[in-house]
Every structure is written in C-alpha cells, then in structure tokens.
Design a binder for these strands. Structure first.
Lengths: 251, 251
DNA sequence: GTAGAGAATTGGTCAAGCCACTATCGTTCG
DNA sequence: CGAACGATAGTGGCTTGACCAATTCTCTAC
C-alpha cells in the first residue's frame, strides 16, 4: 500500500489528506458500514466530513478505484465494487512491464497456483460450479477457427477452475495472473495452431474435476500448462527483440 | 459477461483524463523510457503535455501510487518504484475486509503457493539467497519471548523462501498474501505459545531447501502450515464475534 | 574550499465554478 | 388509466489560479 513507507517511521505519521480519504473508507468497510454494492456519500459531502477539498477527495477515490475497491459512475455516484472478489490485473501488469517477467516465470507460477486449484476443485467437488467450466470447454470447441474468441474461453476456463475450488483467495490470485496471461497472449494467439489439442486438454481437466479425481486433475493441468508453454514459445516472433521477455500491456 | 466495464464498449473508448495520465505513464514504462527508480516529469509539465489540469494529474498519480507503481516525495519529485518487484497488500486487504475471507481459506491458498515455492527453492538452489532465510530463522530463535518481533521474522522467512525460488512472480504473490497474514496475526500473536516449536519447523524447512531436497521442503512446509493453522485457531478470542472470519485491517 | 543563506523547483492542498451524465418525478398525450 | 416525455435536481469529471511546505540547487561570504 501507499502508506507503507511512512508507516515504518517510529512516530505516528500525519496522514496526507488523500490517504485520509482511503483510510476513512477502509474504516467504514472494516466496520461493516460499507458493503459491496453500497453507494458512498457524494464527493462534496465526503470532502466536508473530512475537512478536505474535493480534488483531494477525488485523488483518494482514484486510489481506491485503482485498487479495485470502488467504481464511480458519472451522475450516479461512487460504489463499492460488487460481484465476486476480484484483484485487478493492473498492479501485476505494471510489475511485469517494469521488471520484465519472462514467459517461463509466469508459467511456473501458474503451474503451482492452478495445479493446486484444480486439485482442490476436484476434492471439494462443488457440482454447481461445474457448469461454468463445461460451458467454456464447449465454447473452445466452438471457436477453433477464431483464436481471439478461443483465448477468451481459455482464460475463462482457468478462472472457472479456480472458482470451483471454492476458495476466493485462490480464485482472486488466479484471476489476476490469468489477466496478465490474456494481455500478453492476445497479440500472439493468432499464430497459434493445435487449438483443437488445447481444447481436448481442457476437456480432460474438466472431466477429472467433475469425477472428483484430484490426482488426475493435477496431472492433466500440469501437462496442459507444460504443453502450452512449449506451444506459445513457437508463437513467438521469429527474430523479435527481447525473445522471451514479456512486457504486459498495461494499457 | 462483464469484461472490464469500460472495455466492453464496442467503440474506441474516450479515456477519462485521469486514466489518460495512468495510460501515459504505462506507455512510457512499456516503451522502456521509464525504469524503476527513474523520476517522472513534474506534475505541472505532465499536466501541460497531456492538456489536463494539475488536480487531474494528481488523481492519476494517486492511482499509480495505489498500485505501487510510483512514489512521490514532496519537494523532490515522483519516482517509479524501485527495489524488488512487489505487490502491495492493499488490494488483497480490502478484498479480505469486503468479503470476509476465512482463516482456513487463507491457509489453503498459502499451502498451495508456499509449498510450491519451497519446492522450487530447493530445486533451483540459489545458494546466495540462503543467507536471508538463515538469518530469519536465527532471528526467530532470538525472539522467542517477543511475539511481535518473532512474527516479523516469521513473515520475512516465508518471503525469503519465495524469493529463493528465483521466480519474481511467485515472490510477489507470496509477499502479498504474507502481508495479509501479518496484518491479521499482529493482533493475536501475543497469545501464541510454542514459538520454539514454530522456529524449529522453520529451521527444518530451511535445511531441506539448503540441502536441495525438494520433496522434504514441500513436506516440511506443508506440515508447518497445517500446524500453524491449528495453533492460530486456538489463539482466537474465546467467544468473539465472527469466530473464524477475518477482516484484514486495511488501515 | 566550505558552509550557510536564499532562491528555484516540486509535490500537497484549497477555493470556486462549469460541464456532462443520471435519475427522478411530474406532466402531458395517447 | 398508462406510457412517453421533459424539466430538474443531484452527482461525478474537470478546470483555473493560487498558496503552502519540503526539497534541492546555487551563489555568496567567510
């Protein structure tokens, strides 16, 4: 968080006004006075309550929005983000752009995260969440000739697996990294081949989860990710700069 | 499906001015014109370049700061965050506060992430990163009677393990979730007992990694986290509200 | 050569106001 | 009576211009 630097001081920091806004909202959330979907008080009131100016309030609200906590709609108001727990891709994308994560590093992280998620999903066997996975597999088979559409279903399948684990923390982490994968892959997926083979692997993962076979789910997910890593390496530009480095389009 | 709210428009979105600032910086980073530690142009110039007002620029910069991309120092300037790749704890803390992650869910996610990281650390065997782990273990043994200090070393050890995996993506994820753990545990660690046993377990994890024994590293990390989960359950308030729910102090 | 004072630079904030979008509610027309 | 319409307030988005506070630089005086 932003205040971490100053937090390490030994004395009680005097909060910057903008941070004060963030903290105020944080306290309201912790106190249960603000729940997902709720509307915040108008900026003008908030400014008066905290004794700061409106531009300052707006700066704080932008910070909250950047963390995925709030969403503002002109004319309507500012709302606490609803829906399932999500971590935006922004922070990780910037990190990728700044430090140049390699494709292999990302796949390694996915291997750990998603193999675990697939195993969990098979173990807990939340049958009501199986439909989503099934639909995405179907969508993949239906878009074998449209790489972009295929990719969307691909990413959504992996998120669905994480969601099927029943663990929102895991789901949020997988969602974050899958957003990163989507951003990078969007540019190269046109050169992909063997989409059918990829769809088959996803189907096998789904079936293993559906049958509650955790070991097989893990094995299939591992195989899929290893295969995908190799396949994507060949999608690379023949002699591009930074062959394996990934920049993660933040925009 | 709700993709990205604004991105789902079919027309080339007209960026809000504040987002324009974020995008501008993002493009500079992607283009390699802005690297960690670099200083941004002054707010006033940035405002003129983009044709927006300074409060708007400031709102965008606050958003970047919230994502951990920039840091501003009054009188000095605004800088791209340097140091090792980090994901701030803010977003995950807010998610925890909003959706009430349970302790078990967090431990489950840690189990997957950190067991994988420990295994990797043992496999790659980056000996120059072993010293940090060792130091933290030493620090734990030296602070058996000071729970708060012990906790700091505890958290740092787990981050060191992730760093020793050599995978910055994994390290960033572990750092994020360990921050969450620290925030919650800070309040209850005083009631902890068996700190010595905990330190011993960390030492065994360290030794397994040091000896390059990946299987043992995974086993020891798994045991440690399972034990810690049980131990922390007993640190709970006897009859507190929300027995297993966790709010994650964002502030 | 160095230390100190002052000026320039830069982030932090405020004040007042206009614009654009949304929602609501009363009115009017079918 | 109901539905389409239109005025009206409420709300976020942004600008201009200014002042304050912390830092950094520079130039002088010793």
């Amino acid at each position: 968080m932003k205040t971490e630097k100053t937090e390490s001081r030994d004395h009680p920091i005097d909060l910057q006004s903008a941070d004060q806004v963030v903290r105020h909202v944080a306290l309201l959330i912790e106190g249960g006075k603000l729940r997902p979907g709720d509307r915040l008080v108008p900026e003008r009131e908030l400014a008066q309550e905290l004794g700061v100016s409106r531009p300052t309030v707006r700066a704080g609200l932008h910070a909250l929005a950047a963390m995925g906590v709030t969403e503002s709609r002109q004319g309507a108001g500012t709302f606490i983000t609803g829906g399932p727990p999500r971590l935006g891709a922004g922070p990780l994308s910037f990190l990728a752009a700044l430090h140049g994560f390699t494709r292999d590093e990302i796949f390694e992280a996915r291997r750990i995260l998603e193999v675990g998620a697939a195993g969990l999903a098979a173990e807990v066997n939340l049958t009501d969440r199986h439909a989503t996975m099934s639909e995405e597999v179907t969508g993949m088979f239906a878009s074998l000739s449209e790489p972009q559409t295929f990719l969307v279903h691909d990413v959504r399948f992996h998120r669905a697996v994480a969601a099927a684990s029943g663990n929102p923390v895991l789901a949020a982490l997988v969602e974050m990294i899958s957003s990163l994968v989507y951003e990078q892959r969007r540019m190269t997926v046109e050169r992909a081949h063997d989409l059918k083979e990829s769809a088959e692997m996803h189907r096998r993962i789904y079936q293993a989860i559906r049958e509650g076979d955790a070991d097989r789910a893990r094995t299939e997910m591992t195989r899929h990710l290893d295969m995908a890593r190799q396949a994507q390496a060949s999608e690379e530009l023949p002699a591009g700069v930074l062959p394996s480095r990934v920049v993660g389009s933040v925009a």
